[in-house]
Simulated scan of single mutants.
Amino acid sequence: MKNILLIGGSYGIGYAIAKELQFECKVYIASRTFENTDDLNVTHIPFDASTDSLDTSKLPEIIDGLVYCPGSINLRPFKGIKPETFEADMHINFFSMIKVIQTILPNLSASNQSSIVLFSSVAASMGMPFHTSVAAAKGAIEGFAKALAAEFTPKIRVNVIAPSLTDTPLADKFLNNDVKREKSAERHPLKRFGTADDLAQMATFLLNDKSSWISGQIFHVDGGMSTLLVNG
């Protein structure tokens, strides 16, 4: 049975991944809160990715999969963004992620072949107004993931999922009424926004052995937004 560590798994995409994996893997969730995980067959580790150091004594010696879920969505005109906002977005999306990976690298290396799954954004590959801060942070993740995959192949696989707008608590302010939800759905060629389950299905695939020949890839799970021009 594989040991899977989710950084952030109490709600949203991480929670959906935990639901998918809880009976076929030993799932560890490191997150600030754990109220929503009471109904899951998981082990919870109190952890704030923005401030804490991960306590590896609570983890198994072998970790077969890591998913880093914490992120941010700061959308505003560039001229109104302070440098501190860019720094905060880089910290939670990128630097905290690096710290986690370096901390558990021995555990990942102890697996026959471990898998790291990271999250980017469609905004990292498309020029989208008001996305400068999040695009910068997520773009860093994509470049880092390819370099890390090359450095640790074949022992550790590294892949990135780049979604468009997904219905999670993080995106609630963009989907908190019917008008916003309808407009958001219409922006996508597949005429709906994403769900946590959409992303969880891709993440669980990248964690299991069915994807053992896949590494260094960016997967756009975005309703066709990044590649399809419909009625344009």
Rank of each mutant, 00 (worst) to 15 (best):
Pro77Asn: 10
Pro77Glu: 13
Phe78Gly: 01
Phe78Asn: 13
Lys79Thr: 12
Gly80Met: 10
Lys82Val: 11
Glu84Asn: 13
Phe86Met: 05
Glu87Asp: 15
Met90Thr: 06
Ile92His: 04
Phe94Met: 06
Phe94Thr: 11
Ser96Gly: 01
Ser96His: 05
Ile98Val: 15
Lys99Gly: 10
Val100Asp: 02
Val100Gly: 02
Ile101Val: 12
Thr103Asn: 03
Leu105Arg: 11
Asn107Pro: 06
Asn107Thr: 09
Leu108Lys: 03
Leu108Gln: 02
Ser109Gly: 14
Ala110Gly: 02
Ser111Phe: 14
Ser111Gln: 03
Ser115Asn: 03
Ser115Leu: 02
Ser115Asp: 00
Ser120Thr: 03
Ala124Arg: 10
Ser125Arg: 13
Met126Tyr: 04
Gly127Gln: 09
Gly127Asp: 07
Met128Pro: 06
Met128Gln: 13
Phe130Met: 14
His131Glu: 13
Thr132Gly: 09
Ser133Cys: 01
Ala136Met: 11
Ala136Cys: 15
Lys138Trp: 09
Gly139Arg: 02
Gly139Pro: 02
Ile141Phe: 04
Glu142Leu: 03
Glu142Asn: 11
Gly143Met: 06
Leu148Asp: 07
Ala149Trp: 03
Ala149Gln: 01
Glu151Val: 02
Phe152Glu: 14
Lys155Gly: 04
Ile156Gly: 01
Ile161Arg: 04
Ala162Met: 03
Ala162Arg: 00
Pro163Val: 06
Ser164His: 11
Leu165Trp: 07
Asp167His: 04
Asp167Phe: 01
Asp167Ile: 05
Thr168Lys: 03
Pro169Tyr: 06
Leu170Trp: 02
Asp172Phe: 13
Asp172Cys: 12
Asn176Glu: 05
Asn176Thr: 09
Asn176Gly: 10
Asn177Ile: 09
Asp178Trp: 02
Arg181Asn: 05
Glu182Asn: 12
Lys183Val: 07
Lys183Phe: 04
Ser184Phe: 09
Glu186Lys: 14
Arg187Glu: 13
Leu190Arg: 07
Lys191Ser: 06
Phe193Arg: 01
Phe193Asn: 07
Gly194Leu: 10
Gly194Ser: 08
Gly194Ala: 11
Ala196Pro: 01
Asp197Gln: 14
Asp198Asn: 05
Ala203Val: 01
Leu206Val: 04
Leu207Tyr: 00
Asn208Ile: 08
Asn208Gly: 09
Asp209Cys: 00
Lys210Gly: 14
Trp213Ile: 15
Trp213Pro: 00
Trp213Phe: 15
Ser215Phe: 08
Gly216Arg: 08
Gly216Asp: 11
Gln217His: 08
Ile218Val: 15
Ile218Lys: 10
Phe219Lys: 08
